[in-house]
């Protein structure tokens, strides 16, 4: 059983977001980088759990990024992947990123490809779906539970107001979210082992980007909170009804 887990580098959740070059570029100054939480906590850790249950499982990690993505992929290896592939290109276009991963996926003949439900920087939630389009594979999105049984996976996915359980024949792509696995911290043994695990760097395939970022904006600041006394909730109800027209 061969698993491919897609890993993305994102700014830490506490990062203050700012832009440079006339609001056309994300300001990386002082930013701490982490593994995209959905990729790490849910996709990767679930893959590791599967390997712990069945040693015949092999986990490959893939990331699309330049050399500055290496600490992130090493950290992912410290958590537990077997080997990693870095595709040497930086892109904000989901189609370019998905096409690179699809090229690796075709070569590797993976049984299961896992992604996080979205990255916390561009929030596009595109990669899993695009991979299914590029590879013509079944896709189960927003999964919060998954078990393997032979050549099928039983997956719970979120639907409006609930969840459904479905069976999918492998090979397949699953995007993972909360509930899938419990967060882990790499241990010393994992960190040491990660140093010698294979990390292959491959050059990107040529693909035309489909989108381009024109500019970034920060949300307008709130004009200031209107405080209401705790013993005057009627005033709050009046403001919400008449001023804010909230209900």
């Amino acid at each position: 059983m061969k698993l491919l887990v897609c890993i993305s580098k994102t700014p830490d959740t506490t990062s203050k977001i700012a832009f440079t070059e006339g609001n056309t570029k994300f300001d990386e100054n002082g930013v701490q980088w982490i593994i995209n939480p959905y990729d790490e906590w849910y996709a990767l850790v679930r893959a590791i759990e599967m390997k712990e249950q069945d040693p015949a499982v092999t986990i490959h990690l893939v990331t699309v990024g330049e050399a500055d993505a290496e600490p992130i992929i090493r950290k992912a290896l410290a958590l537990g992947g077997d080997e990693a592939i870095r595709i040497n290109i930086q892109s904000n276009d989901s189609f370019v990123v998905a096409s690179q991963i699809a090229a690796i996926a075709k070569e590797g003949a993976y049984d299961l490809i896992l992604t996080g439900k979205e990255t916390i920087d561009y929030n596009s939630a595109c990669i899993g779906s695009m991979l299914s389009g590029l590879l013509d594979m079944p896709f189960v999105s927003l999964a919060n539970h998954m078990v393997l049984n032979g050549n099928t996976a039983t997956v719970k996915r979120e639907i409006e107001g609930g969840e459904e359980t479905c069976e999918v024949v492998l090979p397949a792509i699953v995007s993972c979210q909360k509930g899938m696995a419990e967060q882990r911290i790499p241990n010393m043994r994992g960190i040491m082992a990660a140093r010698t695990k294979p990390l292959k760097v491959v050059e990107p395939i040529a693909v035309q980007a489909t989108t381009s970022i024109k500019t970034y904006d920060l949300p307008p600041a709130k004009s200031g909170v209107k405080l209401v006394a705790a013993d005057n909730v009627e005033e709050l109800v009046r403001l919400l009804k008449e001023e804010a027209k909230a209900f």
């Binding site: 832009f19 970022i213 024109k214 920060l218």
Partner: peptide, 12 residues
Amino acid sequence: VFSGKAFAQINI
């Protein structure tokens, strides 16, 4: 983008 911390104008 950035999970609600900013907006991006993107050309298709």
